[in-house]
Design a protein around this nucleic acid. Structure first.
Lengths: 210, 210
DNA sequence: GAGAAAATATAGTGGTCGCTACAAAATCGC
DNA sequence: GCGATTTTGTAGCGACCACTATATTTTCTC
């Protein structure tokens, strides 16, 4: 499908998604999706540029023209990840309800989403750059984690402004544990059991007088 | 988090403590300690053999004569880690008490031990080989995690045999979350707040009728 | 001391890392 | 068409990876 050979017609895979830019021999969205899957499955450092290029069907110069660097592609992958259905908290919020309800839903959704599926497990933001030797990759995920915990805190503060910080961190650390456990092989049953306990704990802490 | 019993015994049991080993130009215990610190601080893959050799003051041939391989040294480091004061659950058990008390102590001890200190944070067993490309390193930590959760389950089963598995996994996943959070910069205050909530949750789950 | 054995240092193995210089090829505006 | 721009493939950069062949030095036994 990398047929860059002539023929003026339009059947060749040109730019997708209406984004204006230079014509490319590959589909950008698809490439980012593929990279996201690889980074998610094995972590940032364990996926090399050579493998990415081979999987995406492009050679190094095209790779660097399109993404700037390996970290540049990782950033795009993270952006797509955070903007898609992996944004668990946003999905849980969309269904409405109070703080306890939304947080409980968030935890249970993670338990359903994190277990291994097609070689991918856990959360890309929480574990994708863990132990990476590249400070840039670590900073990219760290920024998203900071944003996540802030969103959690702001949401919880709507009902419990006093202890919103601690409660948000409770949720965040619980999610980190679920992501790590999933990457170590935990299945949905085990994660759901944890999510239920963590959800009950959160509800009780929320209800408790501070 | 760490196992009470663990990796299969080694061929020459007393070789590690300078007593009977062949004379070397370096101190074996000190070398393993240094390697443990490096692996703990940055993860297995991010620490190279060249750096280990330089830090230990030995050249590659001596390195391989002493440890066999990088993974061999990692195994020794893990063994020392699990056998020392990082064995949180063993320490919490040593002070006696019922299940709820010991588990609460375990969680609070982790909150005190996991935050960054001298560049080291979290748990070596839980996160030392996370995202490693080396299956051998991953297997070594995985074996210790399995032993840890088994030890937790057996202990909890003394009071609550029915739900010991789920409760042990709750503790394990909570510890994983705390380790990950610590490696991402969480301080003792934040981790302690989580540990208290998790401890209360555990006590309530234990007391609840199954 | 002499000879054997062990631990050492020098140097280098092939491989992979992220990344790039260069020039041919495809595509653009006109 | 033509020239200019852009994207591509070929090839390779220096640095690092875990690891080792070989030779020398050290340390042992006697």
């Amino acid at each position: 499908m990398v047929a860059t050979k002539s023929l003026p017609a339009e059947s060749s895979p040109t730019e997708t998604s209406g984004v204006r830019g230079r014509r490319r021999s590959f589909d950008m969205d698809e490439a980012v999706e593929t990279a996201m899957r690889l980074f998610h499955a094995r972590g940032y450092d364990a996926v090399g540029v050579a493998e990415l290029g081979a999987e995406l069907g492009i050679k190094p110069p095209s790779f660097y023209a399109a993404f700037g660097s390996k970290a540049g592609l990782f950033e795009r992958a993270l952006r797509r990840y955070a903007g898609g259905e992996a944004n668990i908290f946003a999905r849980a919020q969309a269904d409405g309800g109070g703080v306890a309800e939304v947080i409980g839903r968030t935890l249970r959704l993670a338990a359903r989403l994190y277990p291994e599926r097609n070689g991918v497990a856990g959360c890309l933001v929480l574990d994708g750059a863990r132990n990476s030797a590249d400070p840039e990759a670590r900073a990219l995920t760290a920024a998203l984690r900071t944003a996540s915990v802030s969103a959690l805190r702001d949401f919880i503060a709507g009902e419990e402004p006093e202890r919103a910080g601690a409660l948000a961190e409770f949720v965040m650390i619980a999610m980190m544990g679920m992501s790590a456990a999933a990457r170590d092989g935990a299945d949905e049953t085990a994660l759901t059991a944890f999510a239920e306990m963590a959800g009950r704990a959160f509800r009780r802490e929320l209800a408790a007088e501070g």
